[in-house]
Design a protein around this nucleic acid. Structure first.
Lengths: 180, 180
DNA sequence: GCTTAAGCGGAGGCTGACTCCGTTTAGGTT
DNA sequence: AACCTAAACGGAGTCAGCCTCCGCTTAAGC
């Protein structure tokens, strides 16, 4: 079942639930009973990935002496995660502030781990102290949303590619304190 | 007619077109004949605002000696514009790269004016030269998207407010060259 | 007063979310 | 083995919104 749901990857997170049910060879009713909302399904699909991100945050906090590098690496992973399925970044952005949804609860640990990564950097004097981790998350999800093409228009001429890495780099520079 | 369309303001840019037609006291068919796509309608509603933004960009380029201040002021206006109607930032983001839509064409002048503002700053050595104006636009629209609450859940507890101004400030710092 | 073409409006077809209820299935009981 | 029951299943049905198409209205020209 989870397997078929990874069809998120090809059609984005807004794939019709009927389509998913069909591919999974299961009735639409069954799908809704197991996952009452789309977010429950997303959360189920992504749960292990979030645990991994939380772990990695802690590892980076220990292994990287430079908090700047640590945060940069972690945000890169987070951005790559959110870019996996079209529409995911928006869903995550909404969920992060809403612990009442399954997805929100699934993100919790990851968010906390990331927050510690930022606050450690702030204590070490690497980052501005007037920002919260929510600001950083907003920027990261904003970048991914901005880079996403909504639909795959076939002949949509080769646009300037809009690298999320460059945009992340800009943001990270903006997070650093002025005089280093 | 245009007047009724400013009901975008209350329900966001995704307001059902039938609802708009009803409020305008007009048939759905009539609405579609005048504005074949939703973007045509948005473009019509926003056209003068975009001209204004283009003008302002040119004024700022002359009046503000510091290109940093000029870009900051202009991006603030742009962000405020995109935050006017829920969903607008995403529509604009998509349209900017697609001159085949009415909205894309309406944005054109504004984008060009903003681009000159950035490039002037780059020539004056204020901004990194490895970025394009599309990067800046992406960050700006990303910020507005990230700050938007998708739906107005009534009792949605007072979340941390997530100021777009702070986020813009971060990005602007990131745009500046390292050693000033 | 009549003709005709442009403009109007809404019925209808389509898709997808979500619900509800009749049916199937499997486990336990005699 | 036959039966009972409760849980799991599946899809028909309802609703909303997008968009098209076609019959009707209206007004301008004769």
């Amino acid at each position: 079942m989870e397997v078929a749901q990874s069809a998120f990857a090809t059609n984005g997170i807004d794939t019709s639930l009927e389509e998913i049910a069909r591919q999974a060879g299961v009735g639409i009713g069954t799908l809704y009973r197991r996952f009452p909302t789309r977010e429950d399904l997303i959360a189920a699909v992504l749960a292990e990935r979030y645990l991994k991100l939380a772990e990695v945050a802690m590892v980076l906090a220990e292994e990287r002496d430079d908090p700047d590098v640590a945060l940069a690496e972690w945000l890169t992973l987070l951005a790559e995660h959110m870019a996996l399925y079209r529409g995911l970044s928006m869903a995550v952005k909404e969920a992060i502030h809403d612990q009442t949804t399954a997805l929100g609860r699934t993100c919790k640990e990851m968010v906390d781990a990331g927050e510690r990564l930022l606050e450690r950097g702030q204590r070490m004097g690497a980052f501005r102290t007037d920002i919260t981790f929510f600001d950083v998350l907003a920027l990261c999800s904003g970048i991914v949303m901005a880079v996403e093409r909504r639909s795959e228009k076939p002949n949509h001429d080769d646009l300037p590619p809009l690298s999320p890495y460059l945009l992340l780099d800009i943001v990270l520079r903006g997070l650093r304190v002025e005089d280093r």
